[in-house]
């Protein structure tokens, strides 16, 4: 009993000291915004007037972190998964390497004829509504549920075909077991029904820069307003 109390004290000490580290390393740049927020969260690098309401721009006062490099993750963060993945560029990565970006994730397979093209279109439609200056803070991640077929080469071709072969679109191949584990974290269900065909749930998930799930959208072609505003909010 004494031992476990001691343990709790040690743990809480660790947690407390962990909290102190959170604010460090947040780089900030001076930026200006319209006091009426005519263009939402649009900011400008130089003072002037708002192109919409013509009011003078004001200095953004809060220290917005441009890049979060703190290593603290919570118990529910997906960065607790230690699985190894291959990108469309055949680069080995762990999910934790994506820390710092807002992640918009979906599970697909490239030979899918029915739902996946629509899921990819949904991802594209979401992306279109994100202010350009936010895109640097966001990664769109496509995880294959058919890793035996979807090699990095296949994923690369798929990315090119969909004009998504750039740094903000990441296509991942994992092992069968790791893909299954990942699907459980996303609450995505899937089943292979023939060699090239899978049945799967259509869910787009948003994770914040520390890997916390903040929003899920279920279904195809659904109203994406809520998920878009969540992504904008999260990628600040």
């Amino acid at each position: 009993m004494i031992k476990s109390k001691f343990f709790i004290i040690i743990i809480s000490f660790l947690l407390l000291s962990a909290c102190h580290n959170k604010k460090e390393q947040a780089t900030t740049l001076a930026s200006y915004e319209c006091p009426m927020h005519c263009e939402g969260d649009q900011t400008y690098e130089e003072p002037g007037s708002c192109p919409v309401c013509k009011m003078d721009l004001v200095l953004v006062t809060d220290d917005k972190p441009i890049l979060e490099t703190s290593n603290e993750i919570s118990e529910t963060s997906i960065f607790n998964l230690t699985s190894d993945w291959k990108t469309q560029n055949n680069k080995s990565i762990k999910l934790k390497e994506l820390q710092g970006k807002t992640l918009v994730m979906v599970m697909i397979y490239t030979s899918c004829q029915a739902a996946c093209p629509r899921l990819v279109a949904d991802m594209r439609n979401i992306e279109k509504q994100i202010p350009v200056d936010r895109l640097d803070n966001i990664a769109f991640v496509f995880v294959s549920i058919d890793p035996e077929t979807d090699t990095p080469q296949k994923l690369k071709a798929f990315a090119k075909e969909n004009r998504m072969d750039d740094n903000s679109h990441i296509f991942l191949q994992g092992s069968l077991a790791d893909v299954r584990e990942f699907s459980n974290v996303l609450s995505v269900k899937y089943k292979q029904i023939s060699p090239l065909d899978f049945s799967h749930s259509n869910i787009i998930s948003v994770f914040d820069k520390n890997g916390e799930l903040v929003k899920q959208q279920e279904g195809l072609g659904v109203d994406n307003k809520a998920i878009v505003s969540e992504i904008i909010q999260t990628s600040k």
């Binding site: 899918c112 029915a114 739902a115 996946c116 269900k189 089943k191 029904i193 065909d197 899978f198 049945s199 799967h200 749930s201 259509n202 279920e218 279904g219 195809l220 072609g221």
Partner: peptide, 9 residues
């Protein structure tokens, strides 16, 4: 719309 291919299983 929720499950692609669900009709077949």
């Amino acid at each position: 719309n929720l499950f692609c291919g669900s009709a077949s299983i």
